[in-house]
């Protein structure tokens, strides 16, 4: 068995060795489900299955695209570390019969368990996610180190799977630095042909049209 000190050191080194690829300032497809118009160049990395974009570094500002969250899935996967399996088991899980409010609550609870401390959501509202009916809210939180931070979250259910985009960064400088570009990016969300989104389940049977709906 490895000494505990070596295991801890390995975790720290693994966390430090993330590889980035360049995202050009042009149309980008996210998970084959929707596209966005990137206004500026970003750096992209995989964060436990979540597509994370940043300019100045993930600890300063990040744009997370969480895709295809299915019934029973958690929004985030915790990095492997001692005790992480138990904590992952206690992460909130998505249910595909969530109401609008429950979807918002699921995102907030997931963010809290993922390290956003003392999170406060504001202006929670229905919002378009491309052509899909979705939700949006703003939020404030404290990082692990107590840094005041801001965020925007928007989400929609597309073919029974939840898609979420979260922009967050430090309240001072890094969140506002690219907020306008992110707002334009969010406004540019366009579902790939054939994808149908909904948040109002009762309307689904009456109004939802598209491939696969009999």
């Amino acid at each position: 068995m490895w000494p505990k000190s070596i295991l801890i050191l390995s975790c720290l080194l693994l966390a430090a060795c993330q590889s980035f690829t360049l995202v050009e300032a042009e149309k980008q497809t996210i998970g084959g489900t929707y596209s966005v118009e990137a206004q500026i160049q970003w750096n992209k990395m995989d964060e436990q299955g979540v597509e994370l974009w940043t300019v100045d570094g993930p600890l300063l500002q990040s744009l997370r695209f969480v895709s295809e969250v299915k019934d029973g899935d958690a929004l985030f996967t915790l990095p492997r570390a001692p005790g992480s399996a138990e904590q992952q088991a206690q992460m909130p899980t998505y249910r595909d019969d969530f109401s609008l409010s429950e979807t918002v609550e699921f995102i907030i609870a997931s963010l809290e368990r993922y390290g956003a401390n003392q999170i406060k959501a504001s202006h929670i509202r229905p919002a378009k996610f491309g052509s899909a009916d979705g939700i949006r809210f703003e939020f404030t939180f404290l990082t692990e180190e107590g840094l005041e931070s801001d965020g925007i979250a928007t989400a929609a259910t597309i073919d029974a799977e939840l898609f979420v985009v979260i922009y967050s960064g430090t309240h001072e400088y890094y969140f506002p630095k690219y907020k306008d570009q992110v707002e334009r990016l969010l406004a540019s969300i366009a579902l790939v042909d054939g994808q149908v989104g909904y948040m109002f389940k009762s309307l689904l049977e009456e109004e939802r049209v598209g491939p696969g709906v009999g």
Binding site: H123, I124, I135
Partner: peptide
């Protein structure tokens, strides 16, 4: 309430 618009949407959808 911060989620007023959302709840109004829920009511409208009933």
């Amino acid at each position: 309430a911060e989620d007023r618009e959302l709840i109004e949407a829920e009511i409208k959808n009933l």
